[in-house]
Design a protein around this nucleic acid. Structure first.
Lengths: 387, 387
DNA sequence: CAGACTCCCGGAAACGTTTACAGCAATGAG
DNA sequence: CTCATTGCTGTAAACGTTTCCGGGAGTCTG
């Protein structure tokens, strides 16, 4: 004869069978009581007691198999050390939590393979949906996204035709805001420290920088452009390379981590910020405000993008038939001390290293930021919680 | 008659039944082929083809129900915005990934209820194990940890008797290292900006600070102690309160975020760092190196703790019968520019506010750190048990 | 050529839960 | 007093996979 049907799970933990047997009722009754639907007072008492005695804890996997949902939502980002993703994550979390679900985060370290694998694994029903923010988008990627078994929302640029829910910003324009601001402040030798050009944001920002300079009739000196990756150390190294061969009077950085690296490089090289070199970062993370001087930064609305992505996802989870949607969040510039001092120039700018010191404001951090300058609050969006 | 047994899942996606039917084989054969075990060449061909045609993707939930494992490991931390957790996470991730599993992160925002809920939910079998790093430990908490249905490893202090795998550091001693260093550099009016005292690390660091001062025969001026929380903004505010009522010549901060806040407060108040006030943070995160001047910081070995915790967890997953283990990682101090200038004092220190400026090194960031000075405090500090 | 061995296959049971359905007792109305 | 209604209950069928087991065909050995 076969192994007698036990009432415990393989590893010895109690199951609903255990509880039912102990309470002297059927598993159906036990399950009902445990879920709080139905049951006579007496049955409820017995089942509750039995469950407590054996320390019953339901197996969520089994429950999910039956109910076809897990109550979990995943977020896959490239680098969880980048504060921009932290802000995004917080925004997503609050929306997701409000729906009674739980958010799980996975860092992909920008490896396409890893990210695709995650999709192909988690998405195999471990989660009810996921939000991914890829910085490189390959065809493989796209394919995995398009026929994902669970709803997916992408934060970031994606081919216009991709039938995937998508929340993006316009970082080309964003870079333009920074350049406009610097030009208005009299800066002309504007440098750019970017991330890898084979990433979506890297390419967009490069294009934005060139377009913006051209728009002001400034010819680009290629020695003023340097590329690293989107991290602090690489940003600093890239800025050092740039400073070794050129004398910018302003630097635009492709994100705040790079900007912090550049700030360090500048100070170490004895340049004053903003008097000698004005500095503008991107993403407008908390990090920008933590620096001294506080960094001007182009906000790409990461919290807002996160919030909207989460809402899109929840909608799609409840109604998978929805057509693919695309939303856009406008960038805006937060001017702070690192670029606030107008460069006192009288005549058409000539000598790049004719720097003056006076005229620079004695900027003290702690002053309220002169918040968003540019395309003022994009829309009457619902008030956002995050900073 | 009842609904005919369909070969598709409820939501219309193909199942192994679909594939088997289409390939003209049994589900057992289909499953075998899909898992790469057995199958004749012909069968393999047919099944593969069928799977590709219908776009079959296995349901991981069902698989997990059968195999009793998910291949997922969760990490629950309080604040994912704190770089110390990012470092820990990276270390854990690399160990976990090497074992073929995937790491999921959940931020609990320090809410006990949330964390316990996570435990009670994820732990109900969604993951094969989890690492949690609670900053507040309640009885509820402890109970949830002890009888978690899946293996749990705690990073942080826990009652000595708790039968839970546990990797800790000794932050009492850690604070002592900072104080020793500052005293050796001639500082006497040493302030302390701490996190909440009702947290485990907050309490431990407070005790460490008091003990260390006493060890040097320095009487503690309570005005030099201030409390916020473990974030940047609160740290800055706390430092401002402290500076408004006292004139420290050094500040120890309970973590690097607070230290950055304090740095900001100091610079805004016109104090030079390190000439006027030496500054030491804790956790030795990347953030400390990103500041200008770079911050001295007490490393609590977060990456190492993460790595060890992950190893402990993997061991326990494979062998749940292991007795509870406890490991400890020793703190050490990284001295950098923010505290490197010895305060030039000749005679036994007298007047607390008799500060001098000369003698301070013109410290340039970017110099190699004078790495770990000493797990070498004056007295062999009590190796610390619980907090 | 017979027997043993190997390989592949399909049926069916399991993983632990939820839930449709039907039976049954108690209650209320007429 | 009868019948319909209500409220619980238990049986059993799902959810989609993996895997044990027995049977059949083919191959090798003696």
């Amino acid at each position: 004869m076969g192994r007698k049907r036990l009432q415990e799970s393989a590893d010895g933990r109690p199951t609903v069978h255990t509880v039912a047997a102990r309470a002297g009722v059927s598993i159906a009754s036990a399950s009902r009581v445990l879920n709080g639907v139905g049951g006579s007072p007496e049955t409820i008492r017995k089942v509750r007691a039995a469950a407590a005695e054996v320390g019953y804890v339901p197996n969520a996997i089994a429950r999910s198999l039956q109910s076809q949902r897990t109550g979990l939502v995943a977020l896959a980002v490239e680098d969880i050390g980048n504060p921009v993703y932290v802000e995004m994550m917080r925004a997503i979390e609050s929306v997701v939590a409000a729906s009674g679900r739980q958010l799980l985060v996975h860092a992909t370290a920008g490896q396409v393979a890893k990210e695709t694998a995650l999709l192909r694994r988690l998405a195999h029903r471990y989660v009810d949906g996921m939000i991914v923010s890829p910085i490189r988008v390959t065809d493989d990627h796209l394919a995995a996204l398009v026929d994902s078994p669970v709803p997916v929302v992408v934060v970031g640029q994606l081919g216009a035709d991709a039938p995937v829910d998508n929340v993006r910003t316009d970082s080309r324009t964003g870079v333009g805001l920074a350049v406009d601001h610097l030009v208005a402040a009299g800066r002309r030798r504007i440098g750019f420290v970017n991330g890898p050009l084979d990433t979506v944001p890297g390419a967009a920002r490069d294009a934005g920088f060139r377009t913006a300079l051209a728009g002001h009739g400034i010819e680009l000196d290629e020695r003023l452009v340097e590329v690293g990756d989107f991290q602090y150390a690489a940003g600093r190294a890239a800025a050092e390379r740039l400073l070794a061969r050129a004398r910018p009077d302003a630097l635009v950085c492709a994100n705040d981590l790079i900007a912090v690296g550049a700030l360090h490089a500048l100070l170490a090289a004895g340049r004053r910020v903003p008097e000698d070199v004005a500095l503008v970062g991107m993403d407008d993370t908390e990090l920008a405000r933590m620096m001294f001087p506080q960094l001007s930064s182009v906000s790409l609305g990461s919290a807002e993008r996160g919030r909207r992505a989460a809402e899109l996802l929840l909608q799609r989870i409840t109604d998978p038939a929805l057509p693919p949607r695309r939303e856009q969040v406008a960038p805006h510039l937060a001017v702070r001390a690192s670029s606030a001092a107008p460069r006192p120039v009288l005549a058409p700018f000539r000598r790049a290293d004719a720097r003056t010191a006076e005229g620079a404001l004695p900027l003290v951090p702690g002053q309220p930021d002169q918040e968003p300058t540019a395309p003022k609050p994009p829309a009457p969006r619902t008030p956002e919680v995050t900073a």
